[in-house]
């Protein structure tokens, strides 16, 4: 464990090179991200963790193509990332489900934008993913009729159904209660092992990052930088109360506090 140099880009799904992003806000110029160099390997679950304001959401927006870098480059495979695309779907913190559509129609939204599928294939795929997240019996329900945890499950199904190459998750569990969260950690790991997706998760919860990530990237704030990268070599499925996991989490916490103390 400990620091690790960047992997060779050969098996990298996402490649970030010297990425810097600034915002001109009301209180002057903010450097949200500075000189980020990082590779996300194909089939890897990468967890990015850091205190609030360290540029996690900004990084995800850049990867999604919703924002543009000021310096540096981001590539998906060989392609530069310049605009949103179906190969990188995002799961947001909350309430990004469309309230005018029912659960099934929400999951179909992304699928309907894939022209090469027949309607029957779309339906089959939407139902498959709804079953995968355990909501096969809720397809006619409206989002407001579901609990917060169910809504995030639907959001997960919606992001998975169009079969993106990379799944980007922006603190998708932070609005949920501890029990629901624990359940979803289980679901996500099961899906990750079954479907072999590349996943980038950002979170401010260190234990969550260690529980889910193959690697944990610790960000430090002002400006947002990569501080340290940790390998997590624990068997899956992992449980939050596993002592080995707790030990690694406190190692990450210590690294963060020592940096913030400086």
């Amino acid at each position: 464990m400990g620091n690790r140099s960047a992997t060779s880009p050969a098996n990298a799904a996402l490649t970030l090179r010297n990425v810097t992003k600034r915002f001109d806000g009301a209180s002057g110029r903010v450097t949200a991200l500075e000189d980020i160099t990082l590779d996300v390997r194909e089939g890897e679950f990468l967890a990015i963790v850091g205190p609030s304001g360290c540029g996690k959401s900004t990084l995800l927006s850049l990867l999604a193509g919703l924002e543009h870098t000021d310096e540096g480059s981001i590539r998906l495979g060989e392609q530069p990332v310049e605009a949103p695309g179906r190969d990188r779907l995002v799961m947001f913190q909350q309430d990004a489900l469309f309230p005018w559509l029912n659960v099934l129609e929400n999951v179909l939204f992304g699928l309907r934008l894939k022209p090469d599928l027949t309607e029957a294939e779309r339906l089959e795929s939407a139902r498959y993913y709804l079953n995968l997240v355990g909501l096969g019996n809720k397809e006619k329900a409206r989002p407001h009729e579901l609990s917060g945890g169910m809504r995030q499950r639907v959001a997960l199904a919606r992001s998975l159904a169009p079969n993106p190459r990379v799944l980007l998750m922006d603190e998708p569990f932070s609005a949920l209660d501890a029990l629901t969260r624990e359940q979803l950690y289980g679901d996500i790991q099961e899906i990750f092992t079954k479907r072999k997706k590349t996943i980038v998760l950002v979170t401010h919860n260190i234990r969550e990052a260690v529980c889910l990530g193959d690697r944990v990237v610790l960000f430090s704030p002002n400006p947002g930088r990569v501080q340290q990268v940790f390998d997590v070599n624990l068997p899956r499925p992992r449980r939050m109360n596993d002592p080995a996991l707790a030990a690694l989490a406190s190692e990450v916490t210590a690294a963060l506090s020592s940096h913030l103390a400086k």
């Binding site: 919703l66 949103p84 995002v90 947001f92 939204f109 934008l113």
Partner: peptide, 9 residues
């Protein structure tokens, strides 16, 4: 943002 990432524009 959600719609755009799913390819809507």
């Amino acid at each position: 943002r959600a719609a755009q990432t799913m390819g809507s524009n």
